[in-house]
Design a protein around this nucleic acid. Structure first.
Lengths: 123, 123
DNA sequence: CCAAACACCTACATACATGTCAGGGTTTGA
DNA sequence: TCAAACCCTGACATGTATGTAGGTGTTTGG
C-alpha cells in the first residue's frame, strides 16, 4: 500500500513515516517508480514505533531495541524488557493517579449539579 | 526539603525541577534566603509531572490538565459543568489510551519473555 | 574563619518530534 | 490530454526536554 493510505491507517503523517525510515527504525520497499510500498508487516512495525514514540521513547532508544520491533522479535531484546518494565511502572502510576483525579472530578461534578438543582428550585 | 534532596528522591535533575516551575506546572515556596522548599505535596506533584513527561505528555498538555484537575480547580475551571464534562471525556479517553497501551506493552512483554524462556530451554 | 557543598539565575547548546514549503516527477480519471 | 491527487527529496522552522557553564550568594562542618 502507498504512503497516504498507510499514514491514514496509522493515524500519523507521511512525514513521520519517512522520519522512521530516516532514523533507521524500519526499511520500506520501493516500487519501480520509487514509490514506497508498505506491507502489512511494515504497518505493524510502524504502529509499534508510533506507540513507542507516543509513550515517550526516543528514536535513539527505539533503535537500541530494534529487536523488539519485528513481528518475530525473539532476538537479544533483553535490554528492551527492562525499559518496557520501567515504562510500565510509569504508566501504572499514571493510571492510578488519573483514576483518583477522575473520581475527584466526578465528585465535584456531582456537587455542582446538586447546587444547580437547588438554584433551579429557587427560581 | 531543599532542591538537591528533592531531585535525588525523584530521580531527576534540579534543572528539571526548575523547569516544571518555569513551565507553570507547579509553584514551590521559598525560604527567607530564597532557597526553594519542597513540601511532601510538592514532591508528589513533581513525581506526577515526572511520570507524565516520561510517558510522553508535553508540559503543554500537562498544564492544560492541571488547570481543571487541581483540587481547588473551581477557580480556573469556573466555566463550569461543560468544561468539567469535557475534561472528564478527555480524561476517559486518556485512561482508555493508557489501558490500550498498557495492554500492548504487557502483551509484548509476554511474547518477549516466552521467547527468552524458549531460548533458556535450548541452552 | 575557610573551604566545600549547595542554592539561585541567565543563557547558550543539543537532541528530537513534527510541520510545512519548495521544486519536480507520476498516476489516474474525466 | 489535462487537472487533481499522489509521491519524492531536502531544507528550514518551531516547541520542548535537558544538559552544562558562568557568575554569585549561603550554609555548614572542621
Amino acid at each position: 500500500m502507498h504512503a497516504k493510505e498507510a499514514a491514514d491507517l496509522l493515524g500519523i503523517s507521511q512525514r513521520m513515516l519517512r522520519h522512521y525510515e530516516n532514523e533507521g527504525l524500519m526499511v520500506v520497499g520501493r516500487a519501480a517508480n520509487g514509490y514506497r510500498h508498505y506491507t502489512p508487516a511494515d504497518l505493524r512495525r510502524a504502529a509499534r514505533i508510533r506507540d513507542f514514540i507516543a509513550t515517550g521513547f526516543s528514536t535513539r532508544e527505539i533503535r537500541a531495541m530494534a529487536a523488539c520491533l519485528s513481528d518475530d522479535g525473539a532476538g537479544p531484546c533483553s535490554g528492551g524488557i527492562d525499559k518496557l518494565t520501567q515504562k510500565l511502572a510509569h504508566i501504572d502510576r499514571l493510571r492510578a493517579d488519573l483514576d483518583a483525579r477522575r473520581a475527584a472530578v466526578v465528585d465535584r461534578l456531582g456537587e455542582l449539579r446538586a447546587a444547580l438543582d437547588k438554584d433551579a428550585l429557587v427560581d
